[in-house]
Every structure is written in C-alpha cells, then in structure tokens.
Write a protein that binds this DNA or RNA. Structure first.
Length: 135
DNA sequence: GCCAACGTTGGC
DNA sequence: GCCAACGTTGGC
C-alpha cells in the first residue's frame, strides 16, 4: 500500500466538488514524472488531496479505485486514474505548516513544487495525519 | 502581478 | 548531445 499526493487548483476542481461527485478520473496530467507516478498507483492506495494556488493546503484523502488507463480526453499516450473521496482532513494542513516542520523538509511538495502527482512516504503520511488531528 | 524553478522544444 | 529559448506551475 503506497501513499501519494495529488494537486488541484480549487477553481478547476475542488475537494467539495470531488465529494459531491463521489468519484472522478484524474485527467490533465501532461508531465512524464507525474504520469509515471499515476501508473505506479494501485487499487486501494491513498492520496492527499492538495489545493494549489488558492488555499495551499491538504484538504482531504482520496483512494485509488481504478488503476491507470488511457486518458479518454486525448489520443496521445497519457493516463488517468479513478479516485473516490475517503474523508476530509480533521483540520487542513497548510503548506506553511509543512514548511515549518523539521520532519517534513524532504517532502516532494517542498522539493519538487511543480510536480502535480507525487509520492508520500509512510512516515510523512502519518506525520501529516497527526498534525491534522492535533492542530 | 511577479518571478523562480524547472520541464520541454528545437536549432546546431 | 548540448544548451538557449520558451512555456507552465505555483508560491508569494
């Protein structure tokens, strides 16, 4: 079981919209590193749902329900993954909070800020959940 | 709105 | 295969 972080600009696709939809296919990835990460996802993996640009915080948890398949919005070789919402974070965890935490300095979110689909280590995952529950 | 970071494209 | 130019992302 692996952990991930997926980014969305809330004005394009927000956590609220995601919860209303009940499931969605994650399209629009046009970056090779992000594509590689999408294709490495397995059913049951969980991902933090992060609002970029506006909010700049982790707002919820999503689960992989269908592994990577051809992006239906293009004939080129890109993939999408189906996600369903699991639950909102107890409290959102902001980018500023992550930046200020000595234990989270190696997160891809900080080091590879432009990567829209990125792996999260189990340690980072648990640490962020703890922050969410205690802040 | 600006700009740094960085991935991609294309000329050589 | 190198690297300059360019476009995009995303924080501030």
């Amino acid at each position: 079981m692996a952990y991930w972080l997926i980014k969305s600009e809330p004005y394009k696709y927000s956590w609220d919209q995601f919860q209303q939809d009940g499931r969605t296919f994650w399209d629009g990835v046009r970056n090779y590193a992000a594509r590689l990460n999408l294709r490495a996802m397995r059913k049951g993996d969980e991902a933090f749902f992060y609002h970029s640009n506006e909010g700049k915080e982790i707002v919820g948890i999503a689960m992989v329900i269908t592994e990577a398949y051809q992006d239906p919005t293009t004939t080129e070789d890109w993939s999408v993954v189906d996600f369903a919402p699991v639950r909102p974070m107890t409290n959102p965890v902001s980018l500023a909070r992550i930046k200020s935490d000595p234990g989270l300095q190696n997160m891809a979110l900080l080091r590879l800020s432009r990567l829209s689909v990125q792996p999260v280590t189990p340690e980072e995952w648990n640490h962020i959940l703890l922050i969410s529950e205690t802040s």
